[in-house]
Design a protein around this nucleic acid. Structure first.
Length: 311
DNA sequence: TTTTGAGTGCTCTTTACTTCA
DNA sequence: CATGAAGTAAAGAGCACTCAA
């Protein structure tokens, strides 16, 4: 079944039907900081994602107050100042962040594959004797291996932690600004919220996934409505067509003009088609009592002249 | 039952390195 | 020996799927 929708003049009425675009950080104005540091390494030619999102914000949008100050948004990341942020004391899920201090931030700033981290790993990693570099270990703690190794902080499986309202609100505000984070931003955010960078990362991943899910539902609803509208329109047009066909069969008079049947106007002796003459007989005196309209008269005149010339 | 934090596996991109003509 | 192209491995990031609190 082929469904061709033409709604409005939008050339791309359903951008979401195209290949799922990777979120274009450029399109979102993200990564104001050094892009080489950021995750803008993925250059996507896809247009910026333009989702006509219905309101999806579990939290009321509040202007960034002093309580929700996103220091990292100001291109002015302060290495130490963030700990003085207003969220200090949101000590839920507090974990040993000592290791995430400047060292971790430094490591993240070099998280690019082409960064010193990679060369460091090359220099001290498996290739050179199997001793993994510290940055490598940190990187794994940061992400890959941390998936599993974080489990046993105290020898027991880590419980699922619930973010506080303040933390959630802060993350929401951040997400509204940018729905992806580069390592620097992630670390700064984690520092401000007293969370592990991994937690921030996971929160953003989940948020993106659930936003996408919501958007899919919205798009689905929209398509459904479009389908219903088109079905109704189709039904209406079919009905109209039937009526016209019925009219055509009941009144062939209008539909089957015998073009070759000519007759003479009784008053002026001009040639007209039978049907036209018959219709003219029913006309009122708008044409001064003449059964032909001026246009018809002109037509019949030229016909007469042509006939005379032919004869 | 719903929400949401988190684990896992996969894909994709980038980069450094190696090999070869 | 220098050089550029091609191949490869590794790292990092995001996403889909899933589970569980």
């Amino acid at each position: 079944m082929e469904l061709a929708l033409s709604l409005g003049d939008s050339s791309k009425p359903f951008p979401f039907l195209e290949k799922t675009p990777k979120l274009s950080r450029n399109g979102l104005g993200f990564c104001k900081e050094d892009d080489r540091d950021g995750d803008d390494k993925r250059v996507s030619s896809d247009p910026p994602l333009q989702l006509h999102l219905l309101p999806f914000s579990p939290l009321p949008r509040t202007p960034p107050s002093s309580q929700l100050r996103l220091s990292w948004l100001n291109d002015n990341l302060q290495e130490t100042g963030s700990s003085e942020g207003p969220v200090r004391g949101l000590d839920v899920n507090r974990l040993p962040l000592v290791a995430l201090g400047d060292e971790a931030e430094e490591g993240a700033a070099q998280s690019s594959p082409n960064s010193a981290a990679s060369s460091f790993q090359m220099d001290f990693g498996i290739r050179n004797g199997g001793i993994r570099g510290r940055r490598d270990m940190e990187a794994e703690t940061e992400r890959g291996s941390s998936r599993a190794s974080d489990d046993d902080e105290n020898g027991s499986t880590r419980k699922k932690l619930r973010l506080s309202k303040e933390q959630s609100a802060f993350l929401e505000e951040s997400f509204k600004e940018h729905n992806t984070l580069n390592p620097k931003q992630k670390l700064a955010l984690a520092k401000q919220l007293n969370l592990r960078p991994r937690q921030v990362e996971v929160w953003f991943q989940n948020r993106r996934a659930r936003t996408k899910l919501k958007q899919t539902e919205v798009d689905c609803e929209y398509l459904k409505r479009c389908c219903e509208t088109l079905t109704e329109e189709n039904r209406r047009l079919q009905k109209e067509l039937q009526e016209l066909r019925a009219l055509k069969t009941s009144q062939p008079f209008y539909m089957h003009l015998p073009a070759t049947t000519l007759t003479m106007c009784p008053s002026c002796e001009r040639v007209a088609t039978t049907s036209t003459a018959a219709a003219a007989r029913n006309t009122d005196a708008k044409t001064g009592g003449h059964p032909f309209s001026p246009l018809e008269t002109r037509v019949t005149q030229s016909q007469t002249q042509a006939d005379q010339a032919a004869s």
